[in-house]
Every structure is written in structure tokens, then in C-alpha cells.
């Protein structure tokens, strides 16, 4: 089953002056349980594609279906609710809330979803165990290393039980050991929970672990390799 499906997605910046095509007719289907890396040189449109799939940005043309729903038709507020319920984000710069502890960061979206305290506590414990940070529940982001922060960000993205996780260059700021550690965790979650992961990355270590590699060049898919 397709979790994500795009049809002729185009994104044009400055359409009235000097049009710049960040995406130019991208068709992609991503199925449940995929571990997909979107790769390509800088400016190829990786982040733009991720933003459009994640409902953070709107396509200039084309359609984006997530779980069968055309998200390009949703209003800003509907998109916010949609993201909250269906999509987990992992950002390059971790983007944790610095004034909240690791535990509070992880349960934040669940609070927005109005989940019960019991459910939140159980899920936080489960996820922090899963990312190997059960001893850092009360640490603030500033007290954690980059790798640890990114693991908390993965736990946060998984907390609301999203349909898939979008990760924009998640290892860009991490050292080798932290990268391997993070990839191990994500691969395990992909395998054990059948969680769909979509990365944009330059990092060969991530590309090596991906089971599908989609290459973008100049806003178009130039290559789509499945390694199953």
C-alpha cells in the first residue's frame, strides 16, 4: 500500500520573474515499511520534496497523497493537524525545544494530541528505552551530545505513532559513531515496527543502509534503485 504518492509535483520559485524549478514533475510512490533515501547534489530539490511530502510546503503544481488523502487541498490549520497526527519529523539541527527535558520533548506532540498521562508515560519510556536514553529523561537538550539529541528527536518523531518519518539530513551534524548508532536505531524501528522512513541525505553511510535510493537531479528523479 502506498503511504506517500506524488503525481507531477512541481515547485517553482519566483514564477513571475526568473522562474527557478526546485521540483519539476516528480512522481514517486513510497510504500509502508520502506527505508528510503532521497539523494542528489545540493539544489537538486531533496529538502523541497521532503517539505512538500511533509505538508510543510505546497507544490506549485501536482498532487500529493498521504495515506490516500490529497494534502495539497488542506488549509494551513488542517495541515498543522495533519502533520501532528500522521507525520514524524527529524530535522538536521535536531530542533528540540531547549527549555523542555528530553522526556517533555518526546511527549510534547502527544500532549498536543491530548493523549492520557498513562499513555504518554508508557510511550516515552518505551521510546527512550528504544533509543537508548532511558537514563536521560530529565536532561535538557543542552546537556546532551549531538547524537543523543538526534536520538531524542527520533523518539519525539515516533511518539505520536505517525504514518511515516521524514528525516532531513539527520546525520549531517553527527560523528561516525553517533551516525551508526542512529542508523541502527532507525533500521531496527523500521524492521520491528514496520515504520516508514524517508531521508534526504548526502551521507554515504545513510545511503549504504537505505533499501531504496531515489536520486534527484535538477528537480527530477533521475534514478530509483530498490535494494530489497
Amino acid at each position: 500500500m502506498d503511504v506517500i504518492k506524488t503525481q507531477g509535483v512541481t515547485k517553482v520559485y519566483n514564477p513571475d520573474k526568473i522562474p527557478v524549478y526546485a521540483l519539476n514533475g516528480v512522481d514517486i510512490n513510497i510504500e509502508q515499511g520502506e527505508f528510503t533515501a532521497i539523494v542528489g547534489p545540493s539544489g537538486s530539490g531533496k529538502t523541497t520534496l521532503l517539505n512538500i511530502i511533509g505538508g510543510l510546503d505546497r507544490p506549485s503544481d501536482g498532487e500529493v497523497f498521504v495515506g490516500g488523502q490529497d494534502i495539497s487541498q488542506l488549509s494551513d490549520n488542517q495541515l498543522i493537524d495533519f502533520r501532528k497526527e500522521y507525520i514524524g519529523f527529524v530535522f538536521q539541527a535536531y530542533n528540540l525545544i531547549p527549555v523542555l527535558t528530553a522526556k517533555e520533548n518526546v511527549e510534547f506532540v502527544m500532549l498536543l494530541q491530548k493523549r492520557s498521562k498513562e499513555e504518554r508515560d508508557q510511550r516515552v519510556k518505551e521510546l527512550m528505552d528504544s533509543v537508548g536514553l532511558s537514563d536521560k529523561l530529565d536532561s535538557r537538550p543542552a546537556q546532551l551530545s549531538g547524537g543523543q539529541q538526534q536520538r531524542v528527536a527520533v523518539a519525539r518523531a515516533l511518539a505520536p505513532k505517525p504514518t511515516f518519518i521524514l528525516a532531513d539530513e539527520p546525520t549531517a551534524n553527527l560523528d561516525s559513531k553517533s551516525t551508526e548508532n542512529l542508523l541502527d536505531i532507525m533500521a531496527r524501528l523500521n524492521k520491528e515496527e514496520n515504520m516508514t522512513f524517508v531521508f534526504s541525505t548526502h551521507d554515504q553511510r545513510v545511503i549504504d543502509r537505505a533499501r531504496r535510493v531515489v536520486t534527484l537531479v535538477d528537480g527530477k528523479i533521475s534514478h530509483d534503485e530498490r535494494r530489497d
Binding site: 501532528k84 519529523f89 530535522f91 530542533n95
Partner: peptide
């Protein structure tokens, strides 16, 4: 980021 992960504008 907060709006990205689902915190609505009212909040």
C-alpha cells in the same frame, strides 16, 4: 519547528 510538528497557531 513547533508549528511543523503540529502546534497550531492558536497555541
Amino acid at each position: 519547528m513547533l508549528m511543523g510538528i503540529g502546534m497550531n497557531k492558536l497555541k
